[in-house]
Simulated assay, not measured.
Amino acid sequence: MLERNHLHIIKEVNRLKSVTAAAESLNLSQSAVSHTIAKLERRFGVKLWHRKGNTLVYSQAGLYLLSLADKMVTEFEHAERVLQEFAQGRRGIMRIGMECHPCEQWLMGKIQQFLKAWPEVDVEIKSAFRFDGIAALKANEIDVLITPDPVNTEGLNFRSVFNYNLCIVVSEQNPLYNKAFVTAQDLENQILYTVPVGYNRLDVYTRFLDPANVQPKRRVPIESTEMMLQLVSANRGVAVLPEWLVSSHESRLGIKGISIGNKGLQKSVNVGVRDDDLQLDYVKGFIESTRSNV
C-alpha cells in the first residue's frame, strides 16, 4: 500500500540527492529508509531509482511518484494546518440564528468587523429560527443565537453584549406624542404591535402592563419591523421596539420613541452558544466583536 511516508521519503531523497541525507532530514536511520523503499518496490514490482556513479537516477515509476509527492505532500501539510485551525477555532462555519428582526438589523452593524478579522470562518445567517432559537441551538441546527431573551438552559451559555431601552413608538398624530414617558394606563386605548412571541416573553407585558393590571385595546403580533413602523406612521397603533432602532426612522416616518415608564424598560442583546463551543477562538472573537455600542 502506498502511504504518505513513502512520498515524504521520495521527495526528500530528490531534494537532497542522497538517501542518507534524506534519512537524517526525516529523523530516520538510513537502513529504515532503504527498507521502506525496498518493501514498496517489492509490493508493486518496480524500481524507483538506481545509482549511476554518485547520482540517483529515477525510473519512470520513481518520476511518477516524485511528481505525485510534490503535489500531495504539500496538500497533506496544508490539510494538517487546516485541521489545527479547526481545532483551535481559527477556521470553520458559524451559523447564526436570530430570534427577532431587530436582532438581525443589529447584527448587520456588527458583522463586518468580524468578517475582516476572521477571513477563514464562513458565516451563514439562519432566519428560519427567528422565534425558536433555543431549540435550534440545542439541536445543533445553529451555532450562535442572537436573542433579547436568554433562557437559563443546561449546556448553553449566554453573554450580554449590548444594553438598550425598549420604547413605545407613536405617530406625531398620536395624543401620546408629546409625553416624556408613557404609563400603563396610556396604552389602554391603543392597538399595540409586538413581535410574534408569547406574552411571557414580552417585557412590555411582564414588566409593565401586567404589574399594573392593564391591557391594551388589542395586541397585534407582526414579524416585520418595517411593517410595524409603517403602521405606526399611519397612526394605526403603537409599537414596542428598541430605542436605537427607532431613532434612525423618526424624521423619515414622522414617529417618535417614548420611554416606557419614567425609568424606562431596559433590555439587552445576548449571544448564546453551546458550552462546548466556548473554547473556539472564532466564537470568542465573535462575542468580543459584538460588545461595542451601536
Rank of each mutant, 00 (worst) to 15 (best):
S160I: 07
S59K: 06
N200P: 02
V123G: 15
I258V: 08
D149N: 09
F208E: 00
I93A: 08
V121P: 11
A79C: 08
K179S: 10
T55D: 13
G109W: 11
G264F: 07
Y177V: 06
F114D: 07
M108H: 12
N270S: 15
R130Q: 12
N174D: 11
V238N: 03
S247M: 11
R4D: 11
Q190D: 04
N270R: 07
Q112H: 12
L145W: 01
K126D: 14
D70I: 01
D132W: 05
M228I: 01
P148K: 02
R219P: 03
S29W: 00
N270V: 07
V294M: 01
L115E: 15
N293D: 12
T153C: 09
G92K: 07
A128H: 09
E104F: 15
S34Y: 03
H249R: 13
H6C: 03
W106R: 13
S233M: 09
G155I: 04
K263I: 06
A234W: 02
K47S: 15
V73N: 13
S251M: 09
C100V: 04
G155P: 09
I96F: 06
G254V: 11
R91N: 13
E75Q: 09
Q279P: 02
N152L: 10
V121F: 12
Q279E: 13
L107D: 10
S247W: 01
G109Y: 06
S251H: 13
A180N: 04
L26Q: 07
G92C: 08
E80Y: 03
M94A: 13
P216D: 02
G45F: 05
Q173V: 00
E172Y: 00
R130M: 10
R236F: 02
Q112V: 13
N157M: 03
K47P: 07
A21T: 03
M72R: 10
V271K: 06
V197H: 11
L229F: 13
L166A: 01
K179C: 02
K39C: 05
S247F: 03
I222T: 14
V144N: 03
G254L: 06
N189G: 05
R219C: 10
Q84V: 14
E120Y: 14
R4Y: 10
N5P: 00
N14G: 05
D186G: 04
L137W: 08
R4H: 09
R159V: 09
R207D: 11
G257Q: 10
I146H: 06
H101A: 14
E77Y: 04
V151C: 06
S247E: 14
A69F: 04
V169F: 00
A139H: 09
K138Y: 07
G261L: 03
D70R: 08
N262D: 15
N140P: 04
Q105E: 12
E24P: 01
V195L: 05
K11L: 09
V123D: 05
N27S: 14
D122E: 11
S25W: 01
K284R: 15
N174L: 08
V197Y: 05
T74I: 02
S67D: 13
S59A: 10
I37N: 05
